[in-house]
Amino acid sequence: MAEYIVKENALRAFFQALAQERRLLAPVRVGGKLQMAEARPEEVTLDYGNTHQSPKSAFFPQTERLMAFHKDTAQSDPFVYKPLGLDKITPTVLFGLRPCDAQGLAICDQVFQNDRFTDPYWKTKYESSIKIGLACDQPGPACFCTAVGGSPYGEAGLDALAAVKDAGLALKAITEAGAEFLKKLPGLESGAAESELAERRKAVESKMPGPLDQAKVAAGAILDIFNQPHWKDTADRCLNCGTCTFVCPTCHCFDIQDEQNDKGGVRMRNWDTCMSWLYTVHGTGHNPRPTKTERMRQRFLHKLKYIPLKQNGQSGCIGCGRCVTLCPVNIDIREVAKQMNG
């Protein structure tokens, strides 16, 4: 695959070229926080740990209008929903995805395009985008991608991977789509990047935590782990606030709601959280997950048992550390994973 070097003085031109080709999403400061958002070439920074929120909203917005209908009986098809947004997908390039987040998006992709159904709202955005990763040379204090099968130089879910080199970039294509995109990018100079990336990968990985032992979780029966006694202790602290679910790159749950006025209405989906009582309550009032203990247990089982079962052993936690940093009561998924494996 093609390799490139972007020198420091060519960096601005590189981002300009990206923004000219496609809508550019990159880490920029929004309201005091670093986020993966639409960026002007001059705003893009290479100096960051990771974005505050995961980049999932690029393909799965927090609120998304799915379809609309009108009530005008003089027009055709009153009260018939018509899809929204699928016919005008803006070609997008994401620069600066951290490898953990790219892995997270790849896990979501298996859900949105599962063994029976394809979600067109996800697929049209996810598959048409070019995803350029930026490897981590200085992983943050709460980072643990290496503990859950990832790497600061991981390539899963990426079309190309870059690393900062002499205040510029070393860059290599990973997929055909990535190679094709970079080949056509004006002003990009070829140069050896591969060996440097491989060397640095080793160096950074050696400073990162080793694999989290999940052998017993993988081999254990679902009910045995489900019935472990430690859940109540962790749940005593849990506030069910849902922060972990909103910042998690692999949390993909949503609610569907209709809104209307005199003229018509829309059906939209909004991020939802399994920490909420309403999430599972039946019409009869019966709730299969009635207290915060069941709801918190569900989230950890989903990440650490159910997703690995359904996705060839791939952990549903990709080690970005956002939930560890942002949990108001300091629940640490690594500690829970150890208890589950205990």
Binding site: V111, R116, F117, I256, D272, H302
Partner: peptide, 18 residues
């Protein structure tokens, strides 16, 4: 039966185990 939204195995809420 469980509470459902999408019906497609995506929105998450109706799971029983995996």
């Amino acid at each position: 039966e469980n509470r459902m939204k999408c019906g497609l195995g995506i929105c998450g809420r109706c799971n029983v185990g995996p």
